[in-house]
């Protein structure tokens, strides 16, 4: 089973992602990879995917047509509206697409990122061991850029039997973090205000980072100095010179010199990535040991 797909419509910043190219920070390249890793994984189970790789769909959705062949397809992540040849399907879900079928993903009630995965492998060149698109470094995917109408994707090989994963336990409540590498640069008072304050996800958000509105002015007027640069990882919460908090995401800059008050724990980063602009968010500190226990208790 193999297939050729044509993108008819792609929302802005729709990209090809796989698990990413971790290990290249020394070369100045962040890992990229799915903004919501668990939904990416689950979409793969639904699709019976035998290879790494997905279309990461953004809020505005996607239309594609199967030009030839057939393929199993699975979708998950946030909550979008999906239809095949105008017939609505459930989200998350899966289907067999045949030649001539049109898959339409439209905005839904929840989330920023959805994942479309396939039984066969995306036939795209690997860049440094990965298909993941980094528009910042112009690497991976289709010519290192976002997908657009007219792009064709070829799938090769057979998938495996699709599996319906258990319901996801994405969780609710404050986003948990570990105090950051510069936490001591912030006064005790400022740290308290960070933990007790409310923040809002703003529209200034993409795969590089998410800017937050500081609703209680926790950082207003704080003197934020820039420091000697250190490497960055996804989840780092930087406070910019004007007091704006920004959470760095999968396509983050590789190094940074603004103070980092905390780092979002691995177990909560997917949930944070799916928060839409306008969502209020609070932060709660945990220990590294607690964060590790959460990961180990998560059935994978």
């Amino acid at each position: 089973m193999s297939a050729r797909l044509r993108i008819e419509r792609a929302g802005p910043l729709t990209t090809i992602q796989d698990r990413g190219r971790a290990g290249l920070l020394v070369h100045g390249i962040s890992a990229s990879g799915p903004m919501d890793e668990d939904s990416y994984r689950r979409a793969g189970l639904l699709a019976g995917a035998r290879a790494d790789g997905a279309i990461e769909v953004t809020q505005a959705g996607l239309d594609l047509i199967v030009v030839e062949g057939s393929t199993q397809v699975g979708w998950e992540g946030g909550s979008f509206s999906v239809a095949i040849n105008s017939e609505p399907k459930t989200w998350p879900g899966s289907a067999l697409l045949n030649s001539g079928d049109r898959l339409t993903i439209k905005p839904g009630p929840l989330g920023n990122y959805g994942y479309l995965r396939f039984g066969g492998a995306l036939d795209l060149p690997q860049s440094m061991g990965s298909l993941a698109t980094s528009t910042r470094a112009r690497l991976g995917g289709v010519e290192g850029r976002s997908l657009r109408a007219g792009d064709e994707l070829v799938l090769v090989g057979e998938g495996v039997a699709p599996v319906v994963p258990l319901a996801s336990g994405a969780g609710t409540g404050p986003i948990r973090f570990v105090w950051g590498i510069h936490a001591e640069q912030f006064s005790r008072d400022l740290r308290e205000r960070f933990v007790h304050g409310s923040f809002r996800v703003t529209a200034a958000m993409d795969r590089m980072g998410v800017r937050l509105a500081d609703l209680d002015n926790a950082f207003a007027g704080a003197s934020i100095l820039s420091l000697v640069s250190d490497p960055i990882l996804p989840g780092d919460i930087q406070i910019l010179g004007d007091g704006t908090p920004i959470v760095l995401m999968r396509d983050h800059q590789p190094t940074g010199g603004y103070p980092r008050i905390g780092t979002v724990i691995s177990a909560d980063l997917d949930r944070f990535a799916q928060m839409r602009p306008g969502t209020e968010v609070a932060f709660s500190p945990v220990t590294v040991e607690h964060a590790h226990r959460l990961l180990r208790s998560k059935a994978k």
Binding site: V178, I181, T263, V288, A291, H292
Partner: peptide, 8 residues
């Protein structure tokens, strides 16, 4: 600690 998957 730099998050739960790295140290500096």
């Amino acid at each position: 600690p730099l998050g739960d998957a790295a140290l500096l």
